[in-house]
Nucleic acid binder design. Sequence first.
DNA 1: AATATTTCGGACAAATATATCCTTTATTAA
DNA 2: TTAATAAAGGATATATTTGTCCGAAATATT
Lengths: 144, 144
Amino acid sequence: MFSKACEYGIRATLFVAEQSAKGKRTGVKEIAKQTDSPEAFTAKILQTLVKSQILVSVKGPSGGFEIDKASLDKITLMNLVKAIDGDNIYNGCGLGLKECNSKHPCPVHDHFVSIRDDLKKMLSSTTLSQLINDLENGYTVLKR
Amino acid sequence: MFSKACEYGIRATLFVAEQSAKGKRTGVKEIAKQTDSPEAFTAKILQTLVKSQILVSVKGPSGGFEIDKASLDKITLMNLVKAIDGDNIYNGCGLGLKECNSKHPCPVHDHFVSIRDDLKKMLSSTTLSQLINDLENGYTVLKR
DNA sequence: AATATTTCGGACAAATATATCCTTTATTAA
DNA sequence: TTAATAAAGGATATATTTGTCCGAAATATT
Ligand code: FES
Ligand code: FES
């Protein structure tokens, strides 16, 4: 469904979000550890999220990554997925035709579009603050 | 969503199904042409579909690929996707955790599972015969 | 100012997915 | 029986994704 980069990216962002809600800033070492992700690869993904203005980074001692508290309920899963995987999953044809076109649909179009739209709706309406609540009280986990 | 191999495989199978419904057998050259897919790669995918007993192949002159008419409404999109991409898309965790577990869910689990289940339901209930009807009357297309 | 820490950026490496080519095998038709 | 045809299977090539490494730049602490 999502690329590895996107999976790591979402997990990392959620961890950073949780820490930011507590006023803490975290470095890539800790982020990788807590999300069970490869450290150097995670660092790369964090870089792209900074460029996409989803995360804020601070260099030097006591530096790391954080998220502006005010944006915790502005940033959605859609923002993350678009920044890392692009938007093919939302707009692309399920059978890989050059474009999805309901005037000249592929054989799965009518079956597929409603599911794709549900996914789109879910991702674009789910904010970080919604998700970190269950993380904080231990109902959800970022690694096994 | 699906791999290129799976996209090509579904398109190829639908074309073969359409031809089989008319009593025609088709070779890989024609299949690749009509589905706008790379020929040699398509040949490989057709091989795996034959091994998965979804297609039947016949060697030699006037040989090619076909589908038993009786199985046209038994074979589902799920059968194709499982044969080519495996079943991670049905059972795997949306965030890439080792397993999807509703007792210890990842942060997106509760949001994600219903969509994944809708996809599963759609794929497992959609048969080839359902799809080739709209192909034959020109409502749907296999290439642009 | 010097040093330690941490992200940034680029180059590089490995693994996987995508794609091609060529020889062998089976089958049909002449 | 011979020749032609088409899939099977293996080897190889290319592209993309995944992942690592290291020096440079920035910043906080001493
Ligand atoms: S045309 Fe294929 S999903 Fe819309
Ligand atoms: S645990 Fe992640 S989707 Fe179920």
